[in-house]
Every structure is written in C-alpha cells, then in structure tokens.
Write a protein that binds this DNA or RNA. Sequence first.
DNA 1: AACATTAATCGTAATATTGCAATAAATTAA
DNA 2: TTAATTTATTGCAATATTACGATTAATGTT
Lengths: 110, 110
Amino acid sequence: MGLTKTEMFTDQQNEISLFAKVLGHPARVAILQHLFKTNSCVCGDLVNEIGLAQPTISQHLKELKYLGLIKGNVEGTSVCYCINTHNWTAMKTVMTAFLNQDITENQDCC
Amino acid sequence: MGLTKTEMFTDQQNEISLFAKVLGHPARVAILQHLFKTNSCVCGDLVNEIGLAQPTISQHLKELKYLGLIKGNVEGTSVCYCINTHNWTAMKTVMTAFLNQDITENQDCC
DNA sequence: AACATTAATCGTAATATTGCAATAAATTAA
DNA sequence: TTAATTTATTGCAATATTACGATTAATGTT
C-alpha cells in the first residue's frame, strides 16, 4: 500500500519517525552538513556542491523547510538557506532521548 | 525515479541516512521502544502490541535486523528479538555526532 | 504421523519517493 | 521594457515502501 498507518502510533513515535525520515536521504544529510559548515548557503551553491539537478535540490530543501530544520531568506534573485537553530535543537532533543534509551535491562534476553 | 544516487555522497553521509531511514517509520520506532522496555520480545508479542499484521511486523523486523539494530534467536516455535546493544551504541555514536554539529558559526546568516 | 503454533516468505496492490526536463515566477540589470 | 539570473513548480517516469492475504517452513505436541 505504501501508506503508513500513523493513527496506530503515539504522537511521539510519529514525531521521531518524521524527523528520522527527513534525515533518511544522503542529499538532505549533505545539505544540512553544508549549511552547518559554511555561511554561503545560497541554493545555487548547494546545487554545485552536491551535484543533483536544481529541481531535485529544491525539492529536498522544501522537505527540510517543511519539517522546520532550515529556513530560507530571499536575497535578490537568490535564496539564502540556513539551519533553523531553534528547531534543530528541538529535534536533537527528541532524537537524542530516543537514542539514549536505557539498554541495561534486557541485555541478556537472546 | 525513486532511486537514490548514493554514489554522489560520502560513506558517512550514506551511513547516516541509512540509519535515519530505518528509524523513519513509526512501527519500527515502536518495535525498538518495546524491545527496550520489556524482556518479552517474542515476535507475536510485537504483533499484538503494535497492531499491524504479522507479515508486516516480520518485514519491519527484517529491516531492523539487516541494519544490525536487533538480533533474533529461535526459541521453539517462536523467535525472541532483542536490541543488538553493540550495534545500537555504534549507531548512536554516528547519529549523535551528526546531531551535535556546531551551530554557532552561521547563526546570523539569514 | 497428524496436528497445532509461530514466524518467514511470496505475491500483489496501493501509495510514496526520487530525479529531472520543461516551464513558470520573481527579481535584478541593461 | 527586455534580457539575464536564480529558484520554485509542474508533470512524468522509474523505483521504493508499506501493508496484508495466502502460503510455506520450522518446530513442538499429541
């Protein structure tokens, strides 16, 4: 079906999976790393840096923006994209809590 | 095309995105949380707990196992699934390093 | 052996994702 | 205004993902 049954899961589980999903493509990982690394965060730079076609990069940027991880500002004919630090931190908190679940209890299960 | 061009990205970027991708479905998040929470990690329990059909759960377990995040042991007619703590820790290291990228430099970009 | 129980696999339908060419939209420059 | 530049959108093709019924495989039970 290709359709995730989100109604069967908690808000927290859906939130974690949505954040993970948007990080689940190497182009989006590369975009985020580039935005962290440099201040020259214009869309065209990302197209050159990453090597995918411009519409493809634009689409990935749209998803990252939809999840709130980046924000974009129009500057003349180009658009400057940057990390939304507030939302990134919020995402990091959610994901880190999930990753740091306690693993001591069921270590000897299998 | 639906086909990710992995050859354009670094091994690190592909690794991060693969880990994120497997966490990018609420059923797999729920499975992992349940395995962390309880020792009764038999496949049938997960089917009851989560509410998706048995083949669907089995498929999600397969993906988690393929990425190494869980391991399964046959116990009679049932199969006991558990967190692979070693690989979970390794994954956590990779993801945490990505999430903790320094955000001070480009805060004022946009 | 015959049956029951449990999980994996197969096959398939429906939806999602990825990628890009073509085009449109928005702004700037001449 | 016209042209140039840059990014977003549209439309589409190809592949991936999700879900589950039906079946198979594996083990245990009687």
